[in-house]
Amino acid sequence: MTRHRISRAAALPILALGLVACDATPPPVGMVRGAELFETCAPCHGDAGLGDVDIAAPAIAGLPQWYIQSQLQGFQAGWRGKHADDLAGLRMRPMAVSLNREGDIESVAQYVASLEPTFPPSTLHGNAGAGAALYEQVCVACHGAAGRGDEILHAPPIVQLPDWYLLQELEDYRRGARGVNPADTWGITMRANTLVMTDQAMADVIAYVQTLR
């Protein structure tokens, strides 16, 4: 074989590799694509989606696909994570905006939903007994007696969420950093329920939620 023939033979696979590299078609919607997209989430939420309290990134592993999709759509539309006082939300929003191809949100939500949830230990030490009454009075209607949520009411499961995150979000609702955008229909409902809650009531109800695991 002459040198030219060898060069030509070598050029073909190189050209093929180049064409593959230039192919911008994403993998089909689903777990493979979701796993690929999750690499963007992992630096904050962790490889297993268990969160990181130091950067206010909550555990998201095992949250239902419909809820993850809904929140990512909210971040993109600006009804979540676009309030000047919602510091964690402001950090999350541009990451959600970067999911800009058709099927990205569905894929990553499916992947996150497939991750195994854990039940982080309590750190707030509220009074679960006192919290039970408030939970039965206010929260149970949407989040359910077992805290597993209700898709029809757009209420997510809350039992596997870390207590620091639950407190952060309740405080954000109460001070108007979340649930004030008119497009956030379900958030507005949630905010209304937090307006009368004291700091102690929040700690107590969170302590009760953690007994539902």
């Binding site: 000047a84 510091l87 402001l90 950090r91 929003r93 541009p94 990451m95």
Partner: peptide
Amino acid sequence: VIGQQWAWTFQ
């Protein structure tokens, strides 16, 4: 103008 990871807040 207030910068934070990863947004700009303007007052």
